[in-house]
Design a protein around this nucleic acid. Structure first.
Lengths: 137, 137
DNA sequence: ATCGCTGCAAATCATTTGCAGCAGC
DNA sequence: GCTGCTGCAAATGATTTGCAGCGAT
């Protein structure tokens, strides 16, 4: 019988695995925002036996540990990128699908004031702008 | 042989149907943002034979004609509401799931300026704030 | 009489999950 | 050795689509 310490209550140890490392390496070489399927295809080149399920499970762990960011887009797909960039928002091209980051954030004093006047406690937010990039106008 | 006028090139006539009207009626009695499944369940009360496929097809037509607005939320589900409210954004409660509209829009001069300096032509945008509503804090 | 719209069922797409064996620590 | 992680395959959930008949104009 194992003793119960605070340390092993609700604590899941996260191990390293070649697959998780491969996903992370791949995303650091990548500038763009990739869907789970795209990540799967790219990692498969070096790791032919990796499964899409494993990719999804790792994307979730990496999101929880804050190493990557997940964003849901209007097409109903989530896309992922390294967290390095810090907090930012997206310009999504409706023609070529390209996604560019902008570091400007709308959560300014004026807007947080309005939100709090609704008795709402904001935790996070999404701000995605859809339109046409310089190549596609 | 039918003559070809500009009027019937690429123009799809939209007819009225009891099902479409029922969906619209239902949404006007409703204040909240409903998923396709919720709309289906609600309309089924008066229209027991309506199918979920019909609901989806009508939601698409009504969105295209601008009578309703569709928004994709982070849970991967789209939700719908009458267009009456005009342009607005959402406060989404992460506990009870309630969605409140705010008419404040972050697309101010400062931000559109930054976007255009990226050579990007914005068409529309989403701004959703996730957090806790007054009941759930 | 068109042809858009319907119900039904099957198909598709993104994502999740059960399971038995393998692999970090 | 414990237990998290994997590949595989099947399950789930949201949404779409093929089809033959019905209904609005």
């Amino acid at each position: 019988m194992q003793e119960i310490h605070a340390d092993n209550l609700n604590v899941r140890t996260v191990r390293n695995s070649k697959q998780r490392q491969a996903i992370l390496d791949m995303l650091s070489r990548q500038q763009s925002h990739l869907s789970a399927e795209e990540i799967y295809q790219a990692v498969k080149v070096q790791h032919p036996k990796i499964s899409l399920g494993t990719v999804y499970r790792n994307l979730e762990v990496l999101t929880e540990t804050g190493q990557i960011d997940r964003t849901s887009f209007a097409d109903g797909k989530a896309r992922f990128e390294l967290s390095l960039a810090g907090h930012h928002h997206h310009l999504v091209c409706m023609k070529c699908g390209d996604i560019e980051n902008i570091i400007t954030c709308p959560m300014a004093r004026e807007i947080t004031g309005i939100i709090e006047s609704h008795d709402f406690r904001p935790m996070h937010h999404y701000f995605e702008i859809y339109g046409y990039c310089h190549k596609c106008q």
